[in-house]
């Protein structure tokens, strides 16, 4: 029996194996994804993002238990950074994911970024597809959270929860970081710490200032204490509300369609880039070109145009 056949029989090992297959981009992974893509329905994909130390893992853990209590099956992807020096990674998110039911109900997978910088690994959205194809009702994705802006999450999820803590700065910083744009639900976690009320007030007035369509979704700001399980029910409710809201007004479909479009463009871009560079590699000496530019005989803009004219216009 092939691994894929076992996968169709809901074998957990097969699921794990296929995730690795996709993650490692092994020979034939695109074909396999194509196969699975047909099975993807419209399950809920939730992203949890925020700076380091925001308590994302704890929130994920709490939310998983809420979904399970409602009879849902959940798959979680937790992304951690790959060390740029060694290429290795220390994936520690499982530490906070104890006492989960069997994998058929809750499946948890750690991923390393392997060089990607947008908060997810390059393969994260594909793996969400695999999980959904396997039959999980909900896919929860936790971003790296190393501080930089992690925008990939919007293209991988339907509902994005941005998590901040009182010490992660003021509302202005949050706005500059683009967090307001990507969030569907805002959480101030560790709200028992000093400064939380201030931050909430600031965020509220910042949101208020933004011009918003009155019919649009109003971003809720929720003060939680993940460790003490405080206000998690409210967070859970708001996530479901956002889901229902976007499904009812067509926003959900529009967003998914947008994601599909981006995905196609992405696939094309990667494909063209790879092919074009491969073609160039055989025929052009980059060393020579760099020399020319470095010593002022040429400039990069002209070189780009010339190369494209010579090799790209097929």
């Amino acid at each position: 029996m092939t691994v894929l056949e076992k996968f169709y029989q809901r074998d957990i090992r097969a699921l794990s194996r296929i995730i690795s297959f996709v993650e490692n981009r092994e020979e034939g992974y695109r074909q396999l994804l194509g196969e699975l893509y047909r099975m993807v329905g419209h399950g809920l994909r939730i992203g949890i993002t925020g700076p380091p130390g925001a308590g994302k893992s704890t929130l994920v853990n709490r939310l998983v238990h809420r979904f399970v209590a409602d009879g849902k099956t959940v798959a979680v992807i937790a992304v951690d950074p790959t060390s740029p020096f060694s290429g290795g990674a220390l994936l520690g998110d499982r530490v906070r994911m104890q006492e989960f039911p069997a994998a058929e109900q809750v499946y948890f997978r750690s991923m390393a970024t392997r060089g990607a910088t947008g908060g997810l690994a390059a393969a994260t959205d594909n793996i969400a597809v695999v999980m959904e194809a396997f039959g999980y009702d909900v896919v929860l994705i936790e971003t790296v959270g190393v501080g930089q802006v992690e925008l990939d999450i919007i293209d991988a999820c339907d509902t994005v929860v941005v998590t901040l803590v009182p010490e992660s700065g003021d509302a202005v910083q949050a706005m500059k970081a683009g967090l307001m744009e990507i969030s569907d639900v805002m959480v101030i976690n560790k709200a028992d710490r000093p400064g939380s009320e201030n931050l909430i007030d600031e965020l509220k007035s910042a949101l208020h200032l933004q011009k918003r369509d009155p019919d649009a979704w109003q971003i809720p700001i929720i003060a939680t204490e993940g460790i003490n399980d405080k206000n998690i029910d409210l967070l859970y409710e708001k996530i479901l509300e956002h889901d229902a809201f976007t499904r009812n007004n067509g926003r959900f479909d529009a967003h998914r369609r947008e994601q599909i479009k981006k995905k196609i463009i992405n696939i094309l871009r990667n494909r063209f880039q790879r092919e074009f560079l491969d073609t160039l590699a055989g025929q052009v000496s980059f060393e020579q070109i760099v020399d020319d530019i470095y010593y002022g005989r040429q400039n990069p803009f002209q070189v780009g145009e010339d190369l494209y004219d010579a090799f790209g216009r097929k």
Partner: peptide
């Protein structure tokens, strides 16, 4: 040390029972 040798290390934390360990190993492939 494993991380610095270029491996991806999944650390599960303390007080793991044999079923917890094996389930995690399977899910993490």
């Amino acid at each position: 040390a494993f991380r610095d040798a270029g491996m991806e290390v999944i650390y599960t934390g303390l007080r793991q029972t044999p079923p917890m360990i094996v389930d995690a190993a399977i899910q993490e492939d």
